[in-house]
Design a protein around this nucleic acid. Structure first.
Lengths: 316, 316
DNA sequence: TATATTTACGTAACCAGTTACATAATTAAT
DNA sequence: ATTAATTATGTAACTGGTTACGTAAATATA
């Protein structure tokens, strides 16, 4: 079984399954050795019931981490063997109150020695290891409770992909992409306006020559996102963040975030103290991004765009 | 799920199962995220086949640690999906040579990024733990390979029980037990002889007064084993180990071993250089015990007992 | 060369869990 | 007081594995 040596940690799941199996396979014989007529899979249920109080099926399931049908089946097997007894709750007709029968209680006495021997055996095994399995499991349980494996993987994917994104300065070759990416979202949600055409068809004259700046995000050297910093003639604001567009085909790669940060960095380098932007609340992901970038909602600034219904600023 | 906190390590098995499940449950979604149409359970098979060589069902099973029917089923599912192809071996008609189809090979390319992301995710999780799960698993696998959990538990049981055994000097109150325990095995396998009755009915005169010694093993203060050291009139041997008997009801508690060691210790204290014994090869467990105690087979010593067909000595 | 043993592998039945679903009882909200 | 939502539970069907068993082919042995 050289499999795990070569595949590495990708296969923790499979490896854990095999170990679980190996640990579990002797269980029946162990019960047998102590003369206890019990199916190992009943143990968690038996254990929680051996504290004495009657419990409902769901309460048991929750405590031992099984599904309720699993407990339901186990209980009916244990009833057949005469180890537990069921009793309908008088005050709540749904509840099936389960508790150990006298025969079940008898086992709690006999099983004590088995508990200590097995615990000691596991301690003995642990004493022969350098790494503590029990605590390692506890830590993994905790971490996966906070964040599922799926999420951990998603983060890795995103990070890897964002490393493939390069943010570069605008060049005439990117004019078509600059226009296309913006037209795509503007025409989806709104209507192209006169000011849009000017800026998108002639970025050199209308943005760069006026002291503005444009950044392009390349993914695998293909432009997938753009963003402009437009010089404003305003006593309060130095620049406006505008014409930000990211291709829907490149979602989940943090392109917006990388682009936004880069453009703010640029503004800072150009000596800006405040950056302004206009948007529309139907563009929820965009608003979220602006928020994450540190922009806050303001009111009262005049706008030439019809589609603007929210204005934000970012103090640098 | 406070269960594990109270039950402790007795439930490693259950706890491992739940962790395995938690790690595994997202697997399908992860494949999905990378646009790979593969069932997670196929992965180990897919992985070993992705090295390129055609393999037999059993070879795959052995390598990934599954049973062969499991692999057989997985392969037929993968065939249905067009990921692998089968081909009967020409030189050995039993063999079903399995290898990746072109469609399967195509996936090997796409899946690389997923491998690295998942590996990195697991590394990231590990980086947040103090205890190394991966290495802990490897250590447990190794230790359980050497000795099954059943054996570990058996040892604990034996040790615990042997701690309850006390070895004490003979007293007249033990005469009945000394006789009964010996009569039990002698009459089961052979026939009581004249010499037996003398020694068992009158241990004081026939054993102790002649310079011999008797030890009794008490389990829960009940005599469960006896053993005598009889002074010999022989130029070569000082003492004979005889009348050793352990109740069948007290098996697996190392009583014979403890008794044997104690009697040899006694012989040493009495200045003996060699201890002699007679037995019969039908008494296999006894012969094994003598062997473990350091006795070795000899030949040529005369014996008064009919039932003696093996003689042994232990040099002290 | 005939016969016994071993190996490869498929099928069937089982096992210990799950999810999905239905139903009845209780509780909350209008 | 209805009605809607939630909770407790059982049943059915599924899942990912197993063991048991049968058959055919290959190999070892008398």
């Amino acid at each position: 079984m050289s499999f795990f040596d070569t595949v590495g940690k990708f296969a923790v799941g499979s490896r854990l399954r095999l170990l679980t199996e190996k640990i579990t396979e002797d269980a029946a014989q162990i019960y047998n050795m102590y003369g206890i007529d019990m199916n190992p899979k009943w143990f968690p249920v038996f254990y929680v019931l051996s504290r004495g109080e009657a419990m409902t099926i769901t309460a048991i399931a929750k405590e031992i981490g099984h599904s309720h049908p699993s407990v339901s089946k186990i209980i009916s097997e244990m009833v057949d063997k005469g180890l537990v007894k069921e009793k309908k709750d008088k005050t709540d007709g749904r509840r099936n109150m389960v508790s150990l029968s006298p025969k079940g209680k008898e086992i709690t006495g006999k099983i004590e020695e088995q508990y200590t021997d097995v615990r000691n055996a596991i301690e003995a095994i642990s004493a022969n290891t350098r790494h503590d399995l029990w605590n390692a499991i506890a830590e993994w349980e905790f971490l996966l409770e906070q964040k599922s494996l799926l999420r951990w993987v998603q983060e890795q994917k995103k990070e890897r992909e964002s490393r493939k994104v390069k943010i570069v300065d605008y060049q005439p070759a990117y004019q078509q992409a600059f226009k296309d990416l913006n037209v795509e979202w503007i025409s989806t949600y709104f209507r192209m306006e006169e000011a849009d055409y000017k800026a998108l068809d002639h970025p050199q004259e209308y943005i760069l020559d006026n002291g503005g700046h444009i950044l392009v995000a390349l993914y695998d050297d293909v432009p997938m996102g753009v963003c402009a910093l437009i010089k404003m003639k305003d006593p309060e604001y130095d620049y406006e963040l505008a014409k930000m567009a990211v291709s829907p085909a490149a979602q989940g790669k943090s392109i917006g975030w990388l682009l936004g940060n880069a453009i703010l960095e640029k503004a800072r380098a150009l000596g800006a103290k405040k950056v302004y932007l206009e948007s529309n609340t139907v563009l929820k992901p965009a608003i979220n991004l602006y928020h994450k970038l540190g922009f806050e909602k303001i009111v009262g600034h005049p706008s030439p765009y019809e589609r603007c219904n929210i204005q934000m600023e970012r103090v640098l």
